[in-house]
Design a protein around this nucleic acid. Structure first.
Lengths: 190, 190
DNA sequence: GTCTATAAGATGATAGAC
DNA sequence: GTCTATCATCTTATAGAC
């Protein structure tokens, strides 16, 4: 079996560099140095940068699923679920002023292989699908209020959070994100 | 005097590549080939990539000022002003599925020189300042309605539009942007 | 202003030793 | 699994001819 420890370390470092600098601003050598192996060794786990990307998205989707499942089991009120959801984004920004993994890949989308773009879209759709469910349920239970369809409202919320991260990061100002997120949730509250 | 024609052509091509691929995914050679000069010649106009960046932002800020001034002189209603403002973003996406220049640089922010980051922030502040004015005036005249401060609401609107571009671009789906933008404006309308 | 030539280093990727 | 060695190519940038 492959050495999962090294493989995970490579993914951890690559993810951090990707979220911090962007896909085209870090190299296999950058990753290797931090993992303290040689660049060539990374190719043993991930033959190409595209495969590294796919693995990052796959792991991220699994991690997100765990987070969303936990929110679903912990919270019953839609407002609380959304607040917890937002806190996932804030945590990303909080540690090292990182951009969302998918948001960063979205910026680099034209430089990605076709198959990576497809995975990236599925990842966004994971978020949108969950948000749609929460919004739908919140509207029906009377705890949320909005005029668009749950689908459109979910898309708008995700987009707005991504944009809020992008700009808060530019100003290195976490409070910018927090303020935007607070207003976004307030607008949805019944 | 320097050859303004070539200089402008370099800026045009660099801007397109930047908005399409991102700062770290195009080279002086890429620009040179499209302008049909040699890469070394670009250094005559822009000694470093950072200076090219600064020039792009400076030109963009001037262009945006012209656009916003025109909106101000053409439209009196705040809702109309915002609709025109949104159409500037849509036009960018419409032609070649391009990301906003500043939004793209924001993704690459950690790889930018300090001085470029400062210019980038000023560019965002230009937008936010204008939006704040429109929102303030719209609220006072009774044509707009929102709960946050004009400043926070302006920041949120700009963030949301950037995020909507980012994700619409990922799906190569202009209508995603249009739908999000429509709902954003509807939420503000009194 | 634009070119050729060149530097000095980085990049993704592969072959083959250990 | 990890390494060294190597490849072919690209990158930003500079020097100096034309």
């Amino acid at each position: 079996m492959p050495n999962t420890e090294t493989r995970d370390a490579v993914l951890d470092v690559a993810q951090d560099l990707l979220q911090t600098r962007g896909l085209n601003a870090f190299s296999f050598r950058d990753v290797a140095e931090r993992v303290r192996i040689k660049a060539a060794s990374i190719h043993y786990y991930f033959p190409t940068k595209a495969e590294l990307c796919r693995a990052l998205i796959a792991r991220q989707r699994a991690d997100v699923k765990v987070s969303l499942d936990r929110i679903d089991s912990d919270e019953r009120d839609a407002n609380q679920k959304l607040a917890r959801y937002v806190s996932v984004f804030r945590a990303t920004l909080e540690v090292g002023n990182r951009m969302c993994l998918c948001g960063m890949l979205a910026a680099d989308v034209t430089t990605l292989d076709r198959s990576v773009v497809e995975d990236l879209r599925r990842s966004f759709e994971d978020h949108e699908g969950w948000l749609k469910g929460v919004l739908d349920e919140g509207k029906k239970s009377g705890s949320l209020r909005f005029d668009a369809s749950p689908r459109d409202e979910a898309r708008l919320l995700l987009s707005s959070l991504e944009g809020a991260m992008l700009i808060a990061r530019t100003f290195e100002d976490l409070r910018r994100f927090e303020t935007s997120a607070r207003h976004l949730l307030a607008k949805l509250k019944a």
